[in-house]
Design a protein around this nucleic acid. Structure first.
Length: 228
DNA sequence: CCAGACGTTGTT
DNA sequence: GTCTGG
DNA sequence: CCAGACGTTGTT
DNA sequence: GTCTGG
């Protein structure tokens, strides 16, 4: 699963980490939900990578209605090459989705308690494997959207959920982003495999409940004291 | 041929 | 747009 | 993912 | 229960 994540980074930092242009004005966010705009890193046919704001929830180019995006927030790595909605984006619309963490949810006394999963250092920016699409409404309005690819959960996440977003190691970013279009999909699918073990994730309980406005504040990212 | 779906997660 | 089901 | 809505008619 | 909106 990846139904919510955070990106504790400025556009300037993203430019440096991803060696990309754009993204000016991006500020840290701690509670990015489906339907919201979030940065993605794209590789144009020529020239440098660029950072763009896309809407989370992929709308296929053939869709008659943008509402379909609501159920396209994730794509399974195991089937992404076959699904009508993702087949073309896999060939020509791969992207990176910058993040510093993602949330899992635990029911405690009937309430949903968020846990934040992040890398060794909580502020380390990493990249989800993503796909993006450009959709034009019948009226001609353009909507840029993306989805996050998921895979089997690793050891750290498994106690919470059986799925997690694919995290691409930096050494695979170039291969995932280019060339712009491919005919053979197998090498790409291979890139989605090495998430496990290679990417140790730390989970910490967040000091705010779900949809508590404080969840949008950086203070909530600080791990809670261990309970005695 | 046309009509309808096109997705994932989690829960029952 | 493309595939599946009827 | 979670939260919140879940509807139509007629009038502005 | 299921769908939509964020």
């Amino acid at each position: 699963m990846c139904g919510r994540f955070c990106l504790d980074s400025t556009g300037q930092t993203l430019q440096r980490i991803f060696k990309a242009e754009g993204g000016d004005g991006i500020v840290p966010r701690y509670n990015i939900a489906p339907g919201q705009q979030s940065p993605v890193v794209l590789q144009g046919r020529k020239g440098p990578r660029s950072i763009r704001m896309h809407k989370w929830g992929l709308v296929p180019h053939w869709a008659k209605d943008a509402k379909i995006g609501h159920r396209m927030i994730n794509a399974r790595a195991e089937t992404v090459a076959e699904k009508p909605s993702f087949r073309q984006p896999l060939k020509s619309g791969r992207c990176l989705v910058p993040a510093t963490g993602f949330y899992e949810w635990q029911a405690i006394d009937g309430a949903k308690q968020p846990w934040l999963f992040h890398l060794d250092r909580r502020e380390t920016v990493f990249a989800f494997a993503g796909l993006h699409e450009r959709w034009a409404s019948p009226e001609g309005e353009v909507l840029n959207t993306f989805t996050i690819i998921t895979t089997e959960a690793n050891e750290q996440v498994r106690p919470f959920h059986h799925r997690m977003p694919v995290i691409l190691p930096e050494m695979t970013w170039h291969a995932w982003l280019s060339p712009a279009a491919v005919t053979q999909v197998e090498p790409l699918i291979q890139l989605l495999q090495p998430w496990s073990g290679r990417t140790p994730i730390t989970g910490n309980r967040v000091s705010a409940r779900v949809n508590d406005p404080r969840l949008d504040q950086p203070e909530c990212m600080v791990p809670l004291q261990e309970e005695s």
